[in-house]
Design a protein around this nucleic acid. Structure first.
Lengths: 173, 173
DNA sequence: CACTCTCGGTTCGTTGAACGAACTCACGGG
DNA sequence: CCCGTGAGTTCGTTCAACGAACCGAGAGTG
C-alpha cells in the first residue's frame, strides 16, 4: 500500500512505527476522548463529529493495535464499549507533552481546560508532572474547565466536561 | 473546509489545535528529520520519499506555523534551508515521548537507534530525561545506530546517520 | 401488535488529498 | 553548448474522508 497510513521506508524508526498506529487523522482525538472517559461509539461520534465510517475504522485499528479494547457491557441489547488498555494509558505522556507545547506555543494565553493533580490540586507542568509530587499517572489527573472554556456544545461529552472530573472515569455512570 | 487538516469543532482543545499544525501525514517525520540535522528540501525528499508536492506543502505549513524558518544560505545560486525555530525545538519532548512509547509497546525489543545524553553518555529514559542529570534539551542529545539498525539505505541522510551525531547539528557541513 | 427510538454500525456517491512521473527554471561547471 | 543540481510546480490517477441514507436488533410505548 503506497498510499495511506504506513511509512514503509521508515520502519527503522520507532517514531514512524508509532505514527502508523496513532498518526492518522482523528486517531489522537479518539484516544484523548478515551482519557476523558468516553467509551461508547455514539459518544465519540457526537463529540468528534467524524463520519461514522471513519470512526468505525479508527476504533477497529486502535483495537487491532492494542490501544483500545472492545468490551461488551450489555448482552441484551448487545452493546459494546471501547476502553484504554495498558498500552493506551501509556500514551498519556504523549498527549500531555503535545498539549503542553500547544498551550505554550499555539493557544496564545487561552486556557480552555485545566489539568491538575487530583491529590494535591496543583496544576500540572510539562503535561504530566506535578510540581509538588513529581510525575503523575493519568488516573491521578483531574480536568476542569479553564477561564476560556466555552459551554456552547450540547453533546453528552461536552456537557459532562463542564464539571471537574478525573481522567479515565467513564462519562456515563 | 470540511475536509482536510482542521478540527473545527474541537478548537476548544489545545491538543486538537496542535494537531492542526503537526498532525498531518508526514509532518512529524519532517520535524524529526529536522532534529536529525536535515535542512535541505532535497535531503528531506530523498530520506522521506514523499511526493515533492506534499513535501513543499508541509514545509510551507510548518514555516507558517512558526515551527520551521526558511533561510537563504546561498544567494547565487539561490538556495534555501529549513531550520527549527524555538517553537520547533520545543517539540522535542513530544517526539521523545512518542518514541519512548513506541520502543516499549510497538518495537517489541528492536532497537534501531539509541538516544543518549551527550555529556555523560547514558541512555535517555522517558525520551528526554537523563537518569543521572535530569531533563535534557535536544541539543544535548546524541543519537547513534542501535543493535537492530540496518544500513541498507543510501540516501545522504541515512548515510550520515550511520555514525553517532548530535541532534540539531546540520548533516552537511 | 404496531410504532418508534436508540445503539452501533455499513453502504454509497461525491469531493479532495496523496501519489508519482514529468516538467520548469535558475544557476554553475566543463 | 550541454549537463547536473537544487528547489520546486503541474498534472492525471488513485485512494481516503466526507456526509447522508440505510440497516438490524432489541427496548419502550400505546
Amino acid at each position: 500500500m503506497a498510499l495511506g497510513k504506513d511509512y514503509d521506508n521508515q520502519r527503522d524508526c520507532s517514531l514512524a512505527r508509532a505514527l502508523e498506529l496513532v498518526g492518522e487523522r482523528w486517531t489522537m482525538l479518539i484516544v484523548r476522548d478515551a482519557f476523558f472517559g468516553v467509551r461508547r461509539y455514539s459518544d465519540f461520534l457526537s463529540h468528534l463529529e467524524t463520519p461514522r465510517a471513519v470512526l468505525a475504522d479508527r476504533l477497529s485499528n486502535l483495537v487491532a493495535a492494542g490501544i483500545l479494547a472492545k468490551r461488551r457491557y450489555s448482552d441484551s441489547p448487545v452493546r459494546e464499549e471501547y476502553v484504554l488498555t495498558d498500552a493506551g494509558r501509556a500514551l498519556w505522556p504523549v498527549l500531555a507533552a503535545l498539549g503542553t507545547w500547544s498551550a505554550r506555543y499555539v493557544m496564545d494565553g487561552e486556557v480552555p481546560r485545566i489539568y491538575a493533580h487530583a491529590e494535591c490540586g496543583r496544576r500540572l507542568t510539562g503535561g504530566s508532572v506535578c510540581p509538588s509530587c513529581g510525575p503523575v499517572g493519568a488516573d491521578e489527573v483531574e480536568i476542569r474547565p479553564g477561564p476560556d472554556a466555552d459551554f456552547v456544545r450540547e453533546d453528552p461529552v461536552s456537557v459532562a466536561l463542564r464539571e471537574p472530573k478525573r481522567l479515565l472515569v467513564p462519562i456515563r455512570g
